[in-house]
Design a protein around this nucleic acid. Structure first.
Lengths: 162, 162
DNA sequence: ATACTATTGATAATGAATATCAATAAGAGG
DNA sequence: CCTCTTATTGATATTCATTATCAATAGTAT
């Protein structure tokens, strides 16, 4: 249960789901657990399939709904790499999750994480954010950065195709 | 016609569409023209609607196909801001198009462009790219950066909702 | 334990994007 | 300029991720 990780206390979860009488149900606890156990990024479909083993009978609709709620509240981060399916992952600040960015393979869809330059990136983005906020009158809540190209496996095929 | 802009010569277009007997057709010319006249980012649906006025009878399928081809070849840039619809815009290097990034409003979907820090950003990204390429054995072809949050109009409603 | 009602899960519906295919038109060769 | 080959078009059907519907179920306040 999430209480084991002191990043998501029951209190925090009730806050997430509980605006105006929300309930901390079995499926919701299972979803939270899932993302704390399995590290990485998953599509709704993947969550549904993997979770079905541990929590048989859960419905797709519930998975989609809960993912949305968790992402809206900030427990999950939503990614869209342009492959038609949205991916979710535990957001920064959770136990064992460091701020990171992604390398996305345009051929096979594989996603690598990196956090090599996070200090520099943070400094860089913070500076930019501050200026853009005032200059464009835009309240910045976050950013999304990823590099796309070809992973090791797909590079040869790309060279051939070209 | 695109010949007017010396960024997209007929030769270049034939190269784009013409791998192995490709043809430079009316609809394709119309699509290229469209993106050179109308600056900005458009969904396939928007291109279809706006283009239908100037080029009646064009089909949705053709629009989708041509957008894909142009993006694959590099004339267009593909964006996915996670609103379920893909957007396209003329890529850098075309007449009047400077490298830029985007501010995306999570509420109304409005997109602002900025190119305030491009020199710094370029330097920063080039440095990162170089290191990541070798360290992760990843052939980097490009990057995507955008900031999301709330535009001026939507900020008040956001404050209320919170 | 009881009652109230938010949530669930099965299923239908939506909507963007893709596949199908007969009709059309680009462009090579005569 | 005309003919022929075939890539492309556009109408339409189809796919597939995500959302809406709604009766049944299960939190939780009393």
């Amino acid at each position: 249960m999430c209480e084991k990780f002191n990043c998501c206390t029951e209190k925090r979860l009730r806050e997430c789901f509980g605006h105006a009488g929300g309930r901390l149900t079995g499926p919701r606890r299972a979803m939270v657990d899932f993302f704390h156990m399995e590290k990485g990024h998953f599509t709704a479909e993947e969550v549904f399939e993997k979770l079905s083993e541990k929590y048989p009978g859960i419905g797709v609709a519930t998975v989609y709904r809960t993912l949305s709620a968790m992402a809206d509240f900030g427990i999950l981060k939503r990614f869209d790499f342009g492959k038609g399916k949205v991916k979710y992952e535990l957001s920064d600040g959770h136990e064992g999750v460091r701020h990171h960015h992604h390398l996305v393979c345009s051929a096979c869809g594989k996603i690598l994480e990196y956090d090599d330059f996070m200090d520099e990136e943070k400094a860089f983005f913070n500076k930019i954010k501050k200026t853009l906020s005032t200059r464009y009158n835009f309240l910045i809540k976050g950013h999304s950065l990823h590099f796309y190209g070809f992973c090791q496996k797909c590079q040869k095929e790309y060279e051939k195709a070209k």
